[in-house]
Simulated assay, not measured.
Amino acid sequence: MTNPFERADTTYLVLMNDEKQYSLWPSYIIVPEGWTVVVADQTREICTDYINAQWTDMRPRSLQEVVN
């Protein structure tokens, strides 16, 4: 069985939650509650590049606000 998060033959989504945390998600799997699609139906590479460019601080938003 192939890992659905590593398939080259599918499209992916980039999800973000209220804490500004990101997730790579196969587009054929239902988006979990609490997550919003910020990039839709792209290759895995495009999605991971987006996540790497946007998610530069791994701390949840609530922790970033307290510390900053």
Rank of each mutant, 00 (worst) to 15 (best):
Y12H: 07
D9M: 04
T10R: 14
W55L: 05
P4F: 06
T2N: 12
N52Y: 00
T10M: 10
T11I: 10
V67H: 11
Y50Q: 02
C47K: 01
P60G: 05
V31T: 15
R61I: 00
N17R: 10
V37Y: 01
V39F: 02
E45I: 10
S62A: 10
P32T: 08
V66F: 13
T48W: 02
D9I: 03
F5P: 02
V67C: 12
I30K: 13
M16A: 10
M1C: 11
Y50E: 00
I51T: 02
I51Q: 01
D57S: 11
T2Q: 08
Q54A: 13
G34D: 11
K20H: 12
V39D: 01
I29R: 06
D57C: 07
E19A: 14
E19R: 08
N17M: 02
T10S: 10
I30A: 14
T10N: 09
I29G: 00
V14T: 10
I30Y: 03
D49V: 02
V67N: 11
N68V: 13
A40F: 00
V14C: 09
E45P: 01
Y28N: 14
A40I: 00
G34A: 08
Q42D: 08
L24T: 01
R61L: 15
W25L: 00
V39L: 14
D41Y: 00
L13T: 04
T2M: 06
L13C: 12
V67L: 15
T56Q: 09
Y12S: 02
D41T: 10
S23H: 08
T2H: 06
Q64V: 13
A40V: 00
F5H: 14
E19K: 07
P26Q: 05
T10C: 08
L24R: 13
V66H: 11
D49E: 13
Q54H: 12
P4Y: 03
V14L: 07
R59F: 02
T36I: 04
W55Y: 09
D18T: 11
I46Y: 14
T10L: 09
S27K: 09
R44L: 06
P60I: 07
W55C: 03
A53Q: 13
V38R: 09
T56C: 02
S27E: 14
T36L: 05
I51F: 03
T10E: 12
R44T: 02
R44I: 08
N3L: 03
V38Q: 04
P60R: 06
P4T: 05
Q21M: 12
R61W: 15
L15F: 05
T36C: 03
D57E: 12
E19V: 06
Q42R: 15
D49K: 15
P32K: 06
V39T: 12
Q21C: 11
Q64S: 08
P60M: 06
V66I: 15
D57G: 11
R44E: 04
V14E: 02
L13D: 11
Y50W: 14
N17W: 03
I30C: 01
T2F: 01
L63F: 00
N17C: 06
T56I: 09
M16I: 15
V37N: 12
I51N: 03
E33P: 01
Q54S: 09
Q21I: 06
A53C: 04
P60A: 03
S62R: 15
T10I: 15
